[in-house]
Design a protein around this nucleic acid. Structure first.
Lengths: 295, 295
DNA sequence: GCTGTGTCAATATAAATAGCTGGACATATA
DNA sequence: TATATGTCCAGCTATTTATATTGACACAGC
């Protein structure tokens, strides 16, 4: 199954070679003879991959039991022999692509990261730290604005691709995601959009730099249960506070207003009726709450 | 063939029904029995579609010869009975989706427009006028910024999708496309990127609001023959002039510097070594020139 | 050179997708 | 109501894409 190849990072050929030569796993077969991997198979494979990356060779590890494998991997990890996790690898590759101003490579890396890791880990462990890292490198003068902008375009594209590829159920709860007036960094919002879509929401993504009235209008139009706003730039704290309150005032009382992003701490305590989003995980948790008991 | 269905805008069912009931066309068959439409078939179908859209009914028109059909369609066109072209239809649908703040619908419309019309006509006859129309409607206060931004996100996404789906030859000539410092409207640049990619160039798209030095650096890095900049906002004319000259100064003399966009007229005559791009067609023509005699 | 391991090629088969036919049905319009 | 036309369904066939198998080859490290 292609899925397994993607998740483990092994090519189908290697997967078959391991099975043939070492009997690493012994997946069931479909009636037509195609491999059907169980969750246990996948775990086994992942463990072996980790062990191999840590320098061990395939043959000997192949015959170990799940238990022994787990112990082995844990041991390697303690000794620091273990290679960084997959996500970290991708992150490194991605950042290198950014630094080299190689948008096509960046896109390729991000897409394969998404496929290998799955959406949640991709968003949490690759995209989020990548953006952070780029931001820091930019402040440190290590990369230029062009790098940052080109990378933004690619990341936005990959996130859009992710959102597109997700099927949203017809009766999905609805959310609006946007940036307040003055906020021009839209990637946080794009990230939130991707996470929410993956969590089964139908999200109207409105983009950067929007007056409260427009956001409220969209929320009304789409009858959304949740409005998420992303606040990145700390310099805008004062105006962001004002805009948030304004927005809270215009929104219907039943509509939840959630605010998140790197700029949130600068805002100080939030008013009643406005919920702070700590991070993506928190955002997902909040969405689960607001999706209501039907889900 | 799906292609025919897309090009004519008819569903496969209708296509078959017309053939079965009225014998509009009589396409050849593959050895497996699937229809193989000739160019003549396609022209015939397109003509009949036009006639039908002009209010005529299928049955009678089906038996006419190509000649008669052409005359008929020309007649209708003169009387203004003819419906607008396909591209215009899409444009209308797309604008309606924008006005309704329905990003998903907009995306669906744009994608099917792209598939029906092909990239060149899509870019020239749908996206370009759509952006113009949105701009005008926004100035007139008919749509809000949220509409404009949400639409931008979708258009950008579709353009990125288009660029992604194109195969770029390994030895393709290279270009850099970007917006100068102060310019935050990046859609013109995205449009140019899509057009150039479709014309067989490998384009590094850098995004909005970039200092000249960064653009020049990217051009050097990628060894590009052409640097395209998009200038939209007329208020920036003075700064844009300065940035352009600066950029011209840093770029290697052999690198062509092309500038285009709605803001160009406000700039007045351009300096030596900077070429004005009148529109997308002109941009394509310029690219053909700079691609060199090898193409 | 031998071993362990990844990759590739040729050929065959499975699964998925797209298309075909014939017929029923819905809807609008005269 | 009758006609014209678009749409849908069920069951079947083509075409395409993904996998499977087997055997060969490449290459690093001992």
């Amino acid at each position: 199954m292609r899925l397994v190849a993607e998740r483990t990072g092994l090519s189908p050929d290697v997967l078959r070679a391991w099975e043939r030569r070492y009997g690493v796993v012994n997946p069931g077969r479909s009636e037509g003879g195609q491999r059907l991997y169980s969750d246990a198979d996948l775990e086994r494979l992942t463990l072996v991959v980790t062990a191999v990356q840590a320098g061990r060779s395939v043959g000997p590890t192949a015959s170990l039991s799940l238990e022994e494998l787990r112990r082995l991997v844990a041991e390697d990890a303690e000794q620091g022999t273990a290679r960084p996790t997959l996500a970290t690898d991708y992150l490194e590759l991605a950042f290198a692509a950014v630094a080299n101003l190689a948008p096509e490579e960046l896109q390729a890396v991000l897409r394969s990261a998404l496929l290998s890791l799955g959406a949640p880990s991709f968003l949490d462990d690759v995209v989020t730290p990548l953006l952070q890292q780029i931001g820091e490198a930019w402040h440190a003068g290590e990369v230029g604005i062009a790098h940052e902008h080109a990378a933004s375009a690619v990341v936005r594209g990959v996130l859009a691709w992710l959102v597109d590829s997700l099927e949203v159920p017809e009766n999905a709860p609805r959310a609006v995601v946007a940036c307040l007036a003055g906020e021009r960094h839209e990637l946080g919002a794009a990230l939130a959009t991707a996470a929410a879509t993956h969590a089964g929401w139908r999200v109207a993504y409105l983009g950067p730099d929007l007056p409260a009235a427009e956001i409220a209008d969209a929320a009304l139009r789409h009858e959304t249960a949740v409005v998420g706003v992303s606040i990145i730039t700390p310099e805008n704290a004062a105006s962001a506070r004002a805009e948030l309150q304004l927005l809270r005032g215009i929104l219907r009382p039943g509509t939840a207003l959630l605010a998140g992003g790197a700029g949130i701490p600068a805002l100080g305590p939030l008013d009643h009726g406005i919920t702070m989003i700590r991070d993506l995980t928190h955002w997902r948790a909040l969405l689960r709450v607001y999706a209501g008991p039907t889900r």
